[in-house]
Computed example of a mutant assay.
Amino acid sequence: MISTYANALRAAHDAASEQHYPAGTLYVVATPIGNLADITLRALHVLGLVDAVACEDTRHTQALLRAYGIDKPSNQLLALHQHNEAQAAQGVIDLLRQGKRIAYVSDAGTPGVSDPGARLVAAVQAQGLRAMPLPGASSVITAVSAAGLVDEGGDSGGFMFVGFLPSKATERSFAVQALASQERAVVLLEAPHRIEALAAALGALGTRRVTVGRELTKQFEEIATVAAQDLTAWLAADANRVRGEFALVLHPARAQAQMGQGVRVLKLLLEQLPVKVAVKLAADITGEPRNALYEQALVLKAAASEGD
């Protein structure tokens, strides 16, 4: 593997070595989300140049560096993850004050985007020290680029990044309800052990399209766009589809079919009518899927019971 990237290291030196890399700086370095070839030349150069690399998992990062032919002794790898971020950040700041160059990498992708790193950058900047970003791979941007997002007029309407929804079922359902009327695209992330629960919750969005990116950039990458109400069935069609990491893009809600209208009607009807009757009438009034409205009705009733 080292010989495979020998040319890349030489190219990185040729392309990036003449640039300025100030001392006492934190270099926030994006690493591949799967395919090792998705590393920038500047990232390779800086990872070899810095005095230490702060990272989520020192063993993972050591293996990554060695794959590129970069050998760092273990004392130049600093563990900095979500459980020790505040304490470890102070250690990084002390090194920066000594004029050291420090890189920070997450296990995959761009630090600070649903990964540790944001608190470290904030702490460094609060001390008047510099944080220099080295852009690269991001599952968020990768998923958006393959989703084909256009509004009804054929133009891109932008997107919002949400990341991981709550793990508890009721909270997750309320989060999906809040996203139902969002007119922009929404990017979500999910782990394999929770993807089926997320798919069930997203089913409440009915015919709203969802682009699913599974194992992005890896050997078994899979990208598909389905209706939210069909996502559970899509996962069930192949046992391999519940494996790997996920980035999902909810396409913009169509103006004439926003779930928010159905929920508002449903709330009013549930105050006076049984669930089945309220769901039927809400579906007849709004034209929204009865199954999705029924799921929303159960969430609303459960919330009402908790409030009693």
Rank of each mutant, 00 (worst) to 15 (best):
Y21I: 03
P22Y: 08
L26M: 02
V29Y: 02
T31A: 01
P32D: 01
D38V: 09
R42I: 03
A43F: 01
L44Q: 06
V46W: 09
V46L: 12
G48L: 12
G48R: 10
L49D: 02
V50S: 06
D51S: 13
E56W: 00
R59E: 04
Q62C: 10
A67H: 08
A67L: 06
I70R: 02
S74C: 10
S74G: 10
S74W: 10
N75I: 04
A79T: 09
A86S: 14
A88Q: 05
L96W: 01
Q98F: 06
A103F: 03
G109L: 02
G112T: 05
S114A: 05
S114M: 01
D115A: 11
R119S: 11
A122T: 03
Q125A: 15
G128Y: 08
G128F: 08
R130N: 13
L134P: 00
S138F: 03
S138N: 10
I141Q: 03
I141H: 03
S145N: 14
S145C: 13
G148D: 02
D151Q: 07
D151N: 13
G154D: 12
F159Y: 09
F159C: 05
F164Q: 05
K168W: 11
A169L: 09
E171L: 07
F174S: 08
V186F: 00
H193T: 11
R194M: 12
L198G: 03
L202E: 01
L205S: 11
T207G: 15
T207R: 15
T207P: 12
V212N: 07
V212W: 01
E215N: 05
T217L: 10
T217V: 11
I223E: 06
Q229I: 01
A237M: 08
N240Y: 06
G244Q: 03
F246E: 00
L248S: 10
L248C: 10
H251S: 11
P252Y: 14
P252N: 09
M259T: 15
G260S: 15
L268R: 03
Q272C: 07
Q272F: 13
Q272L: 11
Q272I: 06
V277K: 13
A278L: 09
E288D: 14
P289F: 15
R290W: 14
A297G: 07
L298T: 15
K301P: 11
K301L: 14
A303Y: 15
E306G: 11
G307F: 11
D308H: 04
